[in-house]
Design a protein around this nucleic acid. Structure first.
Ligand SMILES: Cc1cn([C@H]2C[C@H](O)[C@@H](COP(=O)(O)OP(=O)(O)OP(=O)(O)O)O2)c(=O)[nH]c1=O
Ligand SMILES: [Mg+2]
Length: 562
DNA sequence: CACCGCTTACC
DNA sequence: GGTAAG
DNA sequence: GGTG
């Protein structure tokens, strides 16, 4: 069962869950400028972009509404970051592929060179301008005529013809729908466009229900969540699962529950849960949840398990030893830990330092920035590779606890890409972007701290759990380390991997349960028939659903947890 | 009364 | 096999 | 703790 929640105190690394691959342990020359990648097409799919267009539409900049693609080739890394920042700050919508853009910004001045990155016929259908178009437009606070900035003389006429106009003087978007619902707390409602859909909540499977990020009964769900966590802390997994399912089912229910008669069609609400809901209707709280919230054991176990590598079992053990605070924990690990010969003094001291940073949530814009940097590194290693940011970001969360990126190799050549993960991580480590990788063998003596690349014979490694750090030149740089999960999937199973890593957790569990019931087996590395174990390959995300005989559910309606 | 997701990594 | 993680 |  999963346990990690969020919590922002001080902390501590347990034994050897972390391996530093950069700073601290090995003195790599620190942050070099960001990669100077040559991204062309590549990169995230448009499904990603469907949810990301416009989050920060506070004031509209002079480039508002313009879809721009900035070609990083021939642009210095730092310069590239600045351009991206300027474009985004001024309202431009940055595209991951040139195909989606209205305007392409490039420092390349020769037709032949540009053709290596962008299809010529596509370029002729758009404006193609030099980077100073952005700078000058920002300076003048208006999107300037593209004709004056055409990157290539052959594209002058088409750039004039296809020059996009900013919509910065238009009226405001539909930003209502928040005053109407009497929602108290939650200072951050979704800024993403509202979803319109016909509710679906009666199925036993989360993968057949529409589960929005925030539901009308969010407060009820939060109370139940506390009880669920408590069950997890005590390793009462079946009980925890029941609460998870109830939470999941309620999340898909489209109305605020005002009377018990409404809930009869919601699955997974038996006697116990029904009673709790009844209590919640009259008191707006659930006594058991209130009680747990102020319970020392509960609080302590929650905080201990917030340390990477410490689960419920270890947390209870530490609690039984009498430890109650991170300071206690720190002291204990600092001494007793040595008895086991894993003197990770600085390693977990480092983990302690990082834990505070890792508890800080990541805004969408920064997630996207990280996605760009990963993709840039990816293009450098194997041009034509593709990547998709999955996880909570893809489901529309405004802030994420980490970033999950699934990527695959280019279409043509297949298994040239065996140690993709290792190569990508190594590349990003050298760039100063990845500072640590999780799943360290051990931190013991200095010898075992080897870079993530030399352990030979690990071609099968398909994912890497890392700690990432933006370059100082990035406009989003806050000096805060971030958790980054990189997942490699061979082309044939790319879309199942994307579905598998988009979540949410309950959605994934029910997807597998559903598949089993259909005589299939689903996991992020593919769909197989249980009979003959024959693999079924999906050619798109929707195809994954089709193969499983499921109706399509868009990522933003897969929020079956919380 | 049986079942409840499924895989990988470390110890 | 147990624990933790996704 | 709920369900087929
Ligand atoms: C934690 C967890 C994740 N997953 C899958 C589904 C998740 O969407 C995906 C990524 O996991 P997470 O990154 O842990 O969660 P998240 O991306 O949904 O939300 P956030 O990062 O903001 O906390 O991995 C599981 O299958 N089981 C689990 O226990
Ligand atoms: Mg995530």
């Amino acid at each position: 069962m999963r346990v990690k929640h969020l919590l922002g105190h001080q902390s501590l690394k347990y034994k050897n869950a972390l391996r530093a691959t950069g700073e601290v342990i090995m003195p790599f020359k620190r942050p070099r400028p960001p990669p100077v990648p040559h991204a062309t097409n590549s990169s995230s799919t448009s499904t990603l972009l469907s949810t990301n267009h416009e989050h920060k539409r506070l004031r509209r900049g002079c480039l508002h509404g313009i879809k721009a693609y900035i070609l990083s080739a021939k642009i210095d890394g730092a310069e590239y970051e600045i351009l991206i920042g300027e474009a985004e700050e001024n309202g431009a919508e940055l595209c991951k592929t040139p195909a989606e853009a209205d305007i392409i910004v490039t420092a390349i001045g020769m037709k032949k060179r540009l053709e290596r990155h962008i299809d010529w016929n596509m370029a002729k259908g758009k404006a193609v301008v030099r980077p100073d178009w952005i700078r000058d437009s920002v300076k003048k606070s208006e999107a300037l005529p593209c004709g004056d900035y055409a990157a290539i003389s052959d594209l002058l006429d088409s750039s004039i013809e296809n020059c996009p106009e900013s919509s910065s003087s238009q009226s405001q978007p539909p930003d209502q729908a928040e005053a109407s619902t009497s929602q108290h707390q939650s200072t951050k409602e979704s800024t993403l466009p509202d979803l319109v859909y016909e509710p679906r909540y009666k199925s036993r499977f989360a993968c057949e229900r529409y589960s929005p990020l925030i539901c009308p009964n969010q407060d009820l769900v939060k109370e139940l969540h506390i009880i669920k966590l408590a069950r997890e802390m005590e390793s009462e997994e079946r009980s925890a699962l029941s609460y998870s399912r109830a939470i999941s089912a309620i999340k898909a229910f489209p109305e605020k529950i005002k009377s018990m008669s409404q809930i009869s069609d919601i699955p997974y609400l038996g006697d116990k849960l029904t009673g709790m809901i009844q209590e919640f209707l009259s008191k707006s709280t659930i006594s058991q949840a209130r009680q747990l919230s102020s319970d020392t054991r509960y609080q302590t176990l929650i905080s201990f398990t917030s340390v990477y590598g410490i689960g419920p079992h270890t947390a209870r053990h530490l609690y039984d030893l009498g430890l109650r605070t991170f300071d206690d924990l720190s002291r204990y690990l600092g001494s007793d830990d040595n008895a086991e010969g894993s003197g990770g003094s600085f390693a977990w001291r480092e983990g302690l330092r990082l834990r505070d940073e890792l508890s800080v949530k990541i805004p969408r814009a920064e997630v996207e920035e990280m996605g760009r940097l990963v993709d840039n590194a990816l293009q450098d290693i194997l041009p034509g590779s593709e990547s998709t940011i999955c996880g909570g970001y893809r489901r529309g969360k405004l802030e994420s606890n980490d970033v999950d990126i699934v990527f695959t190799h280019p279409q043509g050549q297949g298994n040239k890409a065996n140690n993709m993960i290792a190569r990508l991580v190594e590349r990003m480590r050298k760039d100063g972007l990845i500072t640590h990788t999780m799943h360290a063998p051990s931190v013991r003596s200095k010898g075992s701290l080897r870079p993530p690349t030399n352990h030979d014979g690990w071609d099968t490694l398909d994912k890497s759990l890392t700690i990432f750090n933006l370059p100082k030149t990035s406009p989003y740089y806050k000096g805060i380390h971030r958790r980054l999960d990189l997942i490699y999937a061979p082309r044939e199973v790319y879309w199942t991997a994307v579905v598998g890593w988009t979540g949410s957790t309950m959605f994934e569990r029910d997807l597998r349960l559903w598949a089993k019931q259909k005589g299939l087996k689903f996991d992020s590395s593919g769909i197989t028939r249980r009979r003959d174990t024959k693999a079924l390959y999906a050619t798109s995300e929707r195809d994954v659903f089709k193969l499983l005989e499921l109706e399509w559910i868009e990522p933003r309606l897969r929020n079956a947890d919380l």
